[in-house]
Amino acid sequence: MYPEELKYSKEHEWVRMNGNIAEVGVTVFAQESLGDVVFVDLPEEGSDVEQFAKFGEIESVKAVSDLFSPVGGKIVEVNSAATDAPEVVNEEPYGSGWLIKVELTDTAQLDELMDAATYQATLE
């Protein structure tokens, strides 16, 4: 449910590091709480986002929720598969349902995030 290699925010987003590029998505808890995801609104590639700032919106049939970026930097890629077919966020939240890739300004930001066990403990 909460892969060990990822870092987590209290707003239920995850981060996967590849060099200095952070891949960002929402957790299983988030997608299960939302229910069927039917709409994802993401920013333009090339725009900047600050750590913990809003970067988009995600909607299910019944609910609207803001997306907050667990890391800050330049958004180098957005996942058009998620905006075109939002159900991928329910189906593969840690895989093809990722949302944005951020080029990190400062890797020390990662210290502000939780490991899987700590995140999971916040859900109980």
């Binding site: 239920h12 987003e13 988030a30 709480s33 995600i58 609910a63």
Partner: peptide, 13 residues
């Protein structure tokens, strides 16, 4: 995400 506070409709009140 801020699910709890943003759930829509009176069902979530």
């Amino acid at each position: 995400m801020g699910i709890e506070e943003k759930l829509l409709s009176d069902e979530a009140q």
